[in-house]
């Protein structure tokens, strides 16, 4: 009989420890953990909620709605297929609220450097890509004095 009491005491201890573990686990493990894998499934929803800054290809049509002239020029020349946002920066906010949202424009004085990001001479660029040596090609002049970035080949 005394042995049975010992066993009961150990069993009670076991039950207590397991209950404590389960309680701690209940409070420490986030509710969605393990639903999709060994991670918090709610983290995926957190990611999805991040703001979209670039309107992208889908936003090109809304650019053309107000800036039809530029869009038409671009569509018929060398820079077709390149998004407005490649040069003008993220414009999703501007497209959503054209009056208040800030539109980006490459600054006039830094124009040579900006155009040069793509078109400056570099041995590392593919051979057929149009490139100019910025030191030799009309130094000091802004690119836009001769070239229209919306129809660069004219």
């Amino acid at each position: 009989m005394t042995h049975a009491r010992h066993l009961l005491r150990v069993a009670a201890l076991f039950v207590l420890v397991i209950a404590a573990f389960l309680a701690a686990r209940h409070f420490l493990v986030p509710p969605s953990f393990g639903k999709l894998g060994h991670y918090r499934a709610a983290a995926v929803d957190d990611l999805k909620r991040l703001p979209v800054r670039y309107a992208g290809q889908a936003g090109e049509a809304s650019c053309a709605r107000c800036h039809a002239a530029q869009a038409k020029l671009k569509a018929g020349d060398g820079h077709r297929g390149i998004l407005c946002e490649t040069c003008h920066g993220a414009l999703a906010a501007h497209a959503a609220a054209p009056k208040t949202g800030k539109a980006g424009k490459p600054p006039e004085d830094a124009m040579r450097g900006f155009c040069g990001r793509c078109h400056g001479r570099s041995e590392a660029r593919p051979k057929g890509f149009p490139q100019q040596d910025l030191g030799e090609h009309n130094p000091g002049l802004a690119c836009t004095q001769c070239h229209d970035p919306h129809r660069p080949k004219q």
């Binding site: 990611l47 999805k48 909620r49 992208g56 290809q57 297929g81 998004l83």
Partner: peptide
């Protein structure tokens, strides 16, 4: 990199793909 998960789950492409001028 999240592969712009907030974009690709809305049917948009990642921002780097969108702006790449040479494909």
């Amino acid at each position: 990199c999240t592969l712009c998960y907030h974009r690709i789950t809305k049917g948009l492409r990642p921002a780097c793909v969108e702006v790449c001028p040479t494909g």
